[in-house]
Design a binder for these strands. Structure first.
Lengths: 239, 239
DNA sequence: GCTAATTTGTTCGTATGTATA
DNA sequence: CTATACATACGAACAAATTAG
């Protein structure tokens, strides 16, 4: 382990070697065992493990105890178009997938300051909180937490549970149309509860979309915070 | 280390202890040294380090060599509005910050299949690749890789280096106006090179924005791929 | 179905390097 | 300059899951 020895740490040089080996396909679908790599690169097994850990964090590798370390297949991401008229059910059907929304949890809550500002209501106003899981073809695509004004949509929980669709649930309340006012995107490590629902490892990354929908009079209908698996989804915006 | 010993690994239990200690503020702004934590929890220093590493990956902690391990202040994210007329310089000035774009690297390349599709040109067409770093108030906000048709913008590299702005560089080529056609958002772990430029730890998360800008005739001007620190930025879309 | 070998995961010990106070 | 504190690296042992025979 003494090639072009810059001021770079040993495990980083090992990681770089592995990276090119993977890119060239010289290491194949599955990496040699850690002990063999350690021998090959003349380093301690811990050093190899540190390098693998780094590449696993990038999503390039995946280690499975007792089985080995594997090169992750770069699968194309599923596109999720976001626009003024974003509807989940329409999005997934556009991909030839069967949409399904399942109610995870519902709750009566009071608006805190942030929710009151987003929903343009008083602090402490009664809201319904709906936690939902969206699935297409058996693959979980997102978990979403939505807040609705309780006075305006008193039966939203039941309607959603029956239809599995926010659009349909709102229709049953007489709201025929709504649109997306604003979408804020960021990303973070997945929360343990979401990781379960989305079938993600505990260190996975989720795209977080915080959005507000309004009716034709620009009155806020719902504030929602959706979490998407970043390795399976991309959000697409076209003005 | 023998409290409620479930089937959880030692370093995870240490991490959980640290997490509650941080939440309660019992550990203060700065953690005790690793050796002291190891003694306190009756584990090896490596086990403490594994726990700290995990919490650092979540963004909760930040270790600095020779100084100590610190609790990260949860700072509000900087909003980056994205729309048909997205201009980086306008965005940052809107926040009362001084914009600055610095050329990291430039290169002549040929369009591969994906680039050719995005830029509506032939595969193999000559392009200029510009890698740029955007900074506001000394804080790096994004690294961006842009591809421009070489025949149409032969002096784009020099113009950008002189002005530090894509908008200005395009103006010097006679292009007065352009707009955003499409923006695709996803997220991933930061690449080592980007981590350096953005002053991020090697396991940080970046928002990745892949976008295409077009001129008034809808002809593609540039294809770009920008990386934003996910813990410092949010992307805001308003139709 | 059971056992042994293989392979990754965890935990300890020890030593040295490097940046900071 | 010295002490402190995190970073890297090696070695050893065992645990846990999987696979091969």
């Amino acid at each position: 382990m003494n090639d072009t020895d810059e001021g770079v740490t040993l495990w980083r040089r090992v990681a770089d070697r592995l990276r090119v080996g993977i890119a060239e396909g010289a290491l194949g679908d599955r990496l040699p065992p850690e002990t063999e790599l350690a021998e090959r690169y003349a380093v301690n097994r811990h050093t190899v493990r540190r390098a693998i850990q780094s590449l696993a964090a990038e999503g390039l590798l995946r280690s499975e105890r007792g089985r080995g370390t594997f090169v992750n297949a770069a699968s194309p991401r599923l596109s999720y178009p976001v626009g003024p008229r974003t509807r989940f059910s329409e999005n997934v059907t556009a991909h030839g997938q069967r949409p399904a929304g399942r109610l995870i949890r519902s709750e009566s809550v009071r608006a805190d300051k942030a929710l009151a500002a987003m929903l343009d209501c008083a602090t402490g106003a009664p809201l319904f909180r709906l936690d939902t899981l969206s699935v297409a073809n058996g693959l979980p695509l997102s978990v979403s937490t939505g807040f609705f004004p309780a006075d305006r949509f008193p039966a939203i929980v039941r309607h959603y549970a029956e239809t599995g669709s926010v659009t349909e649930a709102l229709k049953l309340h007489g709201l025929l149309d709504y649109r997306r006012l604003e979408t804020r995107i960021t990303a973070e490590h997945v929360q343990p509860i979401d990781a379960e629902h989305l079938h993600l490892p505990p260190d996975a990354i989720v795209l977080v979309s915080a959005a507000v929908d309004v009716d034709a009079d620009c009155r806020p209908i719902q504030a929602m915070r959706s979490r998407f698996p970043a390795d399976r989804m991309e959000l697409v915006f076209r003005p």
